[in-house]
Amino acid sequence: MKYMLLISHGDPGAWENLSEEEQKALPAAYQAIEETPGVTPGQWMQPPDTATTVRVQDGRTLTTDGPFVEMKEAIGGYLFYEADDLDAAIELAGRIPAARMGGAVEIRPLNQ
C-alpha cells in the first residue's frame, strides 16, 4: 500500500526551545527518514503566510493572500511511503521530528 504522510508543524516557537544539540540533530533525523526503504521524499513548504488561497464562486476566481483561516497547525511538508501496512506507516510517522515537537503527521492511503 502506498501512503502520503502530511507533516504539520505545531508551535512555531518549538525550534527556539530546543537545545543547540537538539537543533543540530534534526536534519540528521529527517535525512534518516528520507533514506528509509520505501520512502519517496517530498518537499518542505514555505510558511502558511506565503500562501495564496484560491476559491471559485459564481464562476469568478477569488484569491486571498495567506491562509484563509487562522490555524495552529499547517502543512510544512510531505512524503510518500510504500509499506506493507498502516502499522509500518504509523511507525515511520512516529519517527518524524515534527510529530514530537507539537506538530502531527496525517497518514492517507493513496488510490492505486
Rank of each mutant, 00 (worst) to 15 (best):
M1N: 09
L92D: 04
M101L: 03
S19P: 09
E21W: 07
A89L: 12
P97K: 06
W44P: 02
G77I: 10
Y30D: 08
L79Q: 15
G76L: 14
A51I: 01
P48F: 05
P37W: 07
A88M: 10
E21P: 04
E22M: 06
P109Y: 10
L86P: 00
Y78T: 14
G13L: 06
R55K: 09
T40W: 01
P109Q: 07
T64M: 08
A99K: 05
L92I: 09
R95W: 00
I75Y: 11
Y78P: 13
Y78F: 15
L62Q: 12
V105F: 10
A98Q: 00
G102Q: 01
G102P: 07
I96L: 04
I90N: 04
W15I: 00
P109L: 08
W15K: 00
M4F: 13
Q57I: 15
G76R: 13
N111E: 13
M4S: 13
L62V: 15
A104T: 11
E16V: 03
A104W: 08
E35T: 03
E21K: 11
T36R: 00
L62W: 10
D87N: 14
N111P: 12
K72A: 01
A104D: 11
P67N: 11
P12T: 04
H9S: 05
E20K: 05
E21D: 12
D65C: 02
H9G: 05
T36F: 05
G13N: 07
V69D: 12
M4G: 12
T52C: 02
E20M: 02
L26D: 06
G42H: 07
V56P: 11
W44D: 08
M101H: 08
